[in-house]
Design a protein around this nucleic acid. Sequence first.
DNA 1: CGTCATACCGTAACCGGTTACACGAGCAAA
DNA 2: TTTGCTCGTGTAACCGGTTACGGTATGACG
Lengths: 345, 345
Amino acid sequence: MATLRDVAREAGVSVATASRAINGLGNVTAPTKAAVMAAVKKLNFVPHSGARSLTRRKTDTVGVILPDLFGEFFSEIIRGIDLVAHESGMHLLLGNMHGSTHETAAAIAAMRGRVDGLLVMPPDLKPELLADYLDPALPTVLLNYDAGSLDLPFVAVDNYHGAYAMTEALLARGARQVVHIAGPKHNRDARDRQRGFADAMAKIAKISNPAILPGDFSEESGVKAAQLLVQGQLPADAVFAANDQMAVGLIAGLAEAGKSVPGDVMVAGFDDIPLARHLNPSLSTMQVHIDRLGSTAMMMLLRILRGETLGGASATILTPTLVARGTTGGAAIPAAVAAAGALPT
Amino acid sequence: MATLRDVAREAGVSVATASRAINGLGNVTAPTKAAVMAAVKKLNFVPHSGARSLTRRKTDTVGVILPDLFGEFFSEIIRGIDLVAHESGMHLLLGNMHGSTHETAAAIAAMRGRVDGLLVMPPDLKPELLADYLDPALPTVLLNYDAGSLDLPFVAVDNYHGAYAMTEALLARGARQVVHIAGPKHNRDARDRQRGFADAMAKIAKISNPAILPGDFSEESGVKAAQLLVQGQLPADAVFAANDQMAVGLIAGLAEAGKSVPGDVMVAGFDDIPLARHLNPSLSTMQVHIDRLGSTAMMMLLRILRGETLGGASATILTPTLVARGTTGGAAIPAAVAAAGALPT
DNA sequence: CGTCATACCGTAACCGGTTACACGAGCAAA
DNA sequence: TTTGCTCGTGTAACCGGTTACGGTATGACG
């Protein structure tokens, strides 16, 4: 592979001149520039971005560290990030913590010297630990994580009020005995959603100990919850799953047991994954623009990198909106219309 | 940020010794190693991977260049790649060609000096162009692309025989007038699938000019196809969409027009995206293990990087398998059972 | 005690670019 | 002619690591 010195020699100039010519930094005569460019073509020289970023102290890359890569949730986030990263000519270096705390540290450390900033989503990590791992000198934006004590910028979803609103809606539809299927115990999103549910039940329905079934955000755990519900003879006229994935499993499990939705029991989820509107009946859920989670975080990071100060905007809370569909007996928008984009569902 | 020289100074040794101690390359006394480690802790030094890869001429990173990041297809590929990359301690640098040829060149060029190898998926690029962009010295594996004249290793899906098999299955179910919804004209996958369909119709049903509706792999184009079908009074007892996404739109459109599936018309797709089994009725389709597309490509690349020779295995063809579900009146496996993983659907 | 192998360690040259600074040429003003 | 600028270019010092090579001290051995 040709290096800059090769090009310089070929063009009969110094490396400095070659560099200037290639980067168009002025101060180069037209003929010499042409000579350099000819040499570039001839040797088909491609600049070595690694070396480049070493001196420039800029990599034009941001590191993205996610807990996992499974499912639409993460792919939507990545897409959102890429959307705005691409506009600014930034690249994405993917890190995956694969659920383990130890790997998280490794993933962050491996980013040193490869990225200009970091986008981290640590859904089940204690803030203190996170602070240890992160390099204070490296601009970092947290995804879906309220840093609390740390004063790192972040963008998060208002899980609490979302869950509250959904519970309220179920109650308004006439449900009395609403059961919640919780997410993983240590997961912050899950805990906030559960709190929102419990508070709504207490404040609105005056029920202080609503039934809560365990779950782990997976489809299987939704199926299991359905079985528990039916076999345990748990009285329920509505079930609110902490995410759509579980709601999908739940509905399948209920159908298996001969329960009809929403006839016998209403069902609601959270996230509005693409699948939700295609179910039959379609799934009522809290719509989160997952891609926006990624794109706004990336925009915040870009502004930090440009040296702007975020000021009050250092924390962005995305409010999910309620989408009433078939599983709560709501306005069931014909799938074809929704798919064609005629309605902003 | 502390550099290696800082550490060396702090520990009272030379940079060479510090480097050796940190990397555990022997030839360092236990006490001096301890001193270095202490300095590392004290300054909390994290090695600068950028600089490291410059001298090592190894980045421990592979570049992944995809045409887009939209939908489950790509996220599954990335997940598959990450799965095996992670095992070998490799990182992923994402490049996105955003559909444009010009961007493709830029994306590839930007990888120079940042990666040890490349995974490229250029579904609508001519081989000659691709050859121009690619650096022959950089190990590259093509995703879902038969390089033909270029002798680059690749892993691809046997779209032709998959489509042939699906068409055959529809005919075996008694369909006579099978309509195909094609994918984007310039897309190789789409063209191969269309060829498989046409050949099967000709050979098995002796129909040489089967009806083919235009599409672009999007859900909307499936809806449009349904409208064309109904309004155009096109006789059809089965519709074979070139991918699942379009099949989903198609089904919604048919339902809108009052057509029942599979009663009035059977429907089949291609890919087996996760959504497929959750539709009601569930979608018959050709199952492609999309994640394997990514993981096998990554494994091939790793072997090349390790200096092994691929030999005959330089081309891997993944054969899709037929999954008969509800939309062709096939064995409709209860969703709950399938979700629980009791059956390997 | 001299010789030599061995094990540790330091000096300095690299990897492939960028860029501060110096230098010479050309030209206008004094 | 001398001074002073500007403009184009070259020299060399970086960026932050790795590593070839050479030096020194130590112990074994004749």
